[in-house]
């Protein structure tokens, strides 16, 4: 957390800017962690429908997969829950190799 500069580059500030620019966006939020997950619950990522993103939900480990799912959520308009962890072979491939598990809630932003 960059406490000294809370509101310039964080996901929600960027989300508001992108939304007012007319971009279609989604938010991804870490809702639960187990073990040595890299980012705590509440960490957020904002994603637009072209796959641009700002913020962090895992320090780089699973952002790629989250962005892919978020673009899908923007199209469908339906929130979804993602889970990543070492027990899951796919998750291992996308790289949460620190041994932790995380659940991430992905939701489209509506007008």
């Amino acid at each position: 957390m960059s406490a000294s500069n809370p509101s310039s580059h964080d996901a929600l500030s960027v989300a508001q800017d992108w939304q007012s620019d007319g971009r279609k966006i989604a938010l991804a939020t870490v809702v639960e962690t187990w073990g040595s997950a890299p980012r705590p619950a509440g960490s957020q990522l904002v994603i637009d429908d072209e796959g641009n993103f700002e913020g962090s939900v895992s320090g780089g480990c699973v952002e790629g997969a989250v962005v892919f799912e978020a673009v899908d959520a923007i199209e469908s308009g339906v929130p979804k829950m993602l889970e990543f962890g070492v027990a899951d072979e796919t998750a291992w491939e996308v790289g949460l190799s620190c041994g932790g598990r995380i659940r991430i809630y992905v939701e489209p932003v509506t007008d």
Binding site: S7, S13, A15, Q16, Q19, L27, E107, P108, V109
Partner: peptide, 15 residues
């Protein structure tokens, strides 16, 4: 999430 909710959160954070 509704866009208005995001602006309400940001307003509270700024204050």
């Amino acid at each position: 999430m509704q866009a208005t909710l995001i602006s309400e959160i940001n307003e509270a954070r700024a204050k």
